[in-house]
Simulated assay, not measured.
Amino acid sequence: MAAILSVSGSPSAVSRTAHLLRHVTSRLTRHGHEVATLDVRTLPADALLGADFHHPAIVEAAARFEHADGVVIGTPVYKAAYSGLLKALLDLLPQYALAGKTVLPLATGGSTAHVLAIDYALRPVLSSMGAAHIVQGRFTLDRDIAVGDERADIDPAAADALDRVTDAFSTALPGPANILASTA
């Protein structure tokens, strides 16, 4: 069983990115992994915007990255890049916070014009932070995630594609849990 940190870079309390991450977290849990979550929006804004590396919440967030075997990073795409909120956190983490980690990047956005945001905006930052392996990520269109109060429905084709990248991530993780249990 691998320890996974699921990170939401969405500034919204109710977001498609959060629902996408819940879908992935559920699947990873069924595969036997232990998944913890981190919603960056819950970290103190003054610490993020003031670059307070020593703020207890930032120190604790960095420790959560350190103890994870794998990291799932989800973000909405704004202006062809990942969220500024996620950027603020990544800037405060140690330079090699992802050293030795397997990473699954995920993004949501309103247009296929932003489909390359993972590869051209997020992947280089994750690589510079020392990620051992960045698996194929997934961009999901906003229209493929119908958000309600407590639940979301993901379009079946989008869910299948998301499941495939999640399974590839699970297989790439270190340890005995990389042999997938049969789930449907």
Score class of each variant (00 low, 15 high):
1 M>W: 01
1 M>G: 11
6 S>F: 03
9 G>K: 02
10 S>Y: 09
10 S>M: 08
14 V>R: 14
15 S>E: 10
16 R>T: 13
17 T>Q: 02
23 H>W: 09
23 H>N: 06
28 L>I: 02
28 L>E: 03
29 T>Y: 03
31 H>G: 08
33 H>N: 13
34 E>Y: 08
35 V>L: 03
36 A>H: 14
37 T>D: 14
37 T>P: 00
38 L>N: 07
38 L>A: 02
39 D>E: 13
41 R>I: 01
44 P>V: 01
45 A>N: 01
45 A>C: 00
47 A>I: 00
47 A>Y: 04
48 L>K: 00
49 L>H: 09
50 G>P: 06
51 A>N: 06
52 D>Y: 02
54 H>R: 07
54 H>G: 02
55 H>F: 00
55 H>A: 04
55 H>C: 00
57 A>D: 05
57 A>N: 01
57 A>E: 07
60 E>F: 03
60 E>K: 09
61 A>I: 00
64 R>M: 09
64 R>N: 08
65 F>W: 04
65 F>C: 00
67 H>S: 14
69 D>Y: 12
69 D>C: 09
76 P>W: 05
78 Y>Q: 08
78 Y>L: 11
79 K>Y: 13
79 K>M: 13
82 Y>T: 02
84 G>Y: 06
86 L>F: 03
86 L>W: 02
86 L>S: 01
88 A>Y: 01
88 A>H: 02
88 A>F: 02
90 L>D: 00
90 L>W: 02
90 L>A: 00
91 D>G: 02
93 L>N: 01
95 Q>S: 07
95 Q>Y: 11
97 A>R: 02
98 L>F: 10
98 L>M: 05
99 A>H: 11
99 A>L: 09
100 G>R: 10
101 K>S: 05
101 K>F: 07
101 K>T: 04
102 T>A: 06
102 T>Q: 10
104 L>A: 05
106 L>S: 03
107 A>H: 05
107 A>Q: 06
110 G>N: 10
111 S>G: 06
112 T>E: 12
113 A>C: 02
114 H>A: 12
115 V>C: 06
118 I>Y: 04
120 Y>T: 08
121 A>E: 03
124 P>H: 09
125 V>E: 00
126 L>T: 04
126 L>N: 08
131 A>R: 08
131 A>I: 04
132 A>P: 04
136 Q>L: 11
140 T>L: 12
140 T>F: 12
140 T>D: 10
142 D>H: 15
144 D>A: 15
144 D>P: 14
146 A>L: 15
146 A>C: 14
146 A>Q: 15
146 A>W: 15
147 V>G: 14
149 D>I: 04
149 D>W: 07
151 R>H: 14
154 I>V: 13
157 A>H: 14
159 A>D: 13
159 A>M: 11
160 D>Q: 14
160 D>A: 14
161 A>P: 06
163 D>R: 13
166 T>R: 05
167 D>L: 05
171 T>W: 08
171 T>Y: 11
172 A>Y: 11
172 A>N: 09
173 L>F: 15
175 G>K: 15
177 A>S: 15
179 I>W: 15
179 I>D: 14
179 I>C: 12
180 L>G: 06
180 L>N: 07
182 S>P: 12
183 T>N: 13
183 T>M: 11
184 A>F: 12
